[in-house]
């Protein structure tokens, strides 16, 4: 294994590139369709590379106001992320430093992460009908906050445990109240973890489908639901599906690319530190 280093490396390179091509091909195809003309999309055999990159498919989305759904997604994901981060970090601090509620409480919090959305979406829907929260920002924001809280609490608990206790004690002696310690020491010290966790919280809210499908009608439709509106029985609106999907996916790709180093810890519930 070690002896044929040169050959091994080349072989691994070729394999690595092949694997990457396979995994990226669907995304490539999606992107290409979004730039194709209708003739190219419905050509047989399929066109592998469009004649010219054209943005007509995107222009239509902007003209018809379909991009509003991106805005809806943005509002809902951003506000729910901020709420979840703030409430979750408070709770995580209490658990990490005071063992509030003991192991039972920590386990209970995490177990809420495991509930399948389909199980709760039904009662929530009926509740929201009563509250008048169906098809409103607040309805989805509260729900996404709730659904993200267990994750935020779990992750932030790990990050907060890594903050040296001395920093907080020093602040206490220096004249801070508990709340000031939280705001002036814990918050800035956990900054790295906050960003990493927030990205995943945001991604979840951004990508979520079932809740949005059930709890929106037309006012606050999010972009994943909008994409499914383009599905037809026989003829799909291919160009729209592709362009809309790209609009909704590329921002997430960029956000995650910027936070590469937090990636693993973020998606493994902190099981891998680093």
């Amino acid at each position: 294994m070690r002896a044929d280093k040169g050959l091994g490396l080349t072989l691994r390179y070729v394999t690595a590139i092949a694997v990457t091509v396979v995994f990226l091909f669907p995304i490539y195809w999606l992107a290409m369709i979004s730039f194709k003309t209708p003739e190219e999309i419905f050509a047989f055999p399929p066109v592998w590379w469009p004649e010219s990159i054209q943005f007509a498919n995107y222009a239509v989305l902007f003209k018809d106001g379909d991009v509003d759904t991106i805005w809806n997604s943005m509002v809902i994901a951003t506000v729910s992320t901020v709420c979840a981060m703030f409430l979750g970090t408070m709770c995580a601090y209490s658990i990490a430093r005071f063992r509030t509620g003991g192991n039972f409480f920590a386990d209970w919090v995490l177990s809420n992460r495991m509930i399948p959305p389909i199980v709760i979406v039904f009662p929530i829907f009926l509740l929201y009908v009563q509250l008048g929260w169906v098809d409103t920002y607040v309805g989805l924001i509260v729900l996404y906050t709730a659904f993200n809280l267990p994750y935020v609490i779990w992750m932030m608990r790990g990050y907060i445990q890594d903050i040296p206790l001395e920093l907080e004690e020093s602040a206490l002696v220096d004249g801070c109240s508990r709340w000031q310690v939280f705001m002036k020491v814990v918050w800035p010290m956990a900054r790295g973890g906050l960003f990493a966790t927030a990205v995943f919280t945001f991604v979840f809210a951004w990508n979520e489908f079932i809740f949005a499908l059930v709890l929106t009608r037309s006012d606050v439709t999010t972009f994943p639901v909008q994409v499914t509106h383009y599905f037809g029985g026989q003829s799909n609106f291919w160009a729209k599906i592709a362009a809309m999907s790209m609009l909704g996916t590329v921002p997430i790709f960029i956000a995650v690319a910027l936070l590469q180093r937090f990636l693993v810890r973020g998606i493994s519930l902190g099981a891998v530190k680093g």
């Binding site: 040296p164 001395e166 920093l167 004690e169 020093s170 020491v185 800035p188 010290m189």
Partner: peptide, 9 residues
């Protein structure tokens, strides 16, 4: 404190 407890930020 032993480890100085300085705020890195």
């Amino acid at each position: 404190f032993q480890n100085y407890a300085l705020y890195p930020y």
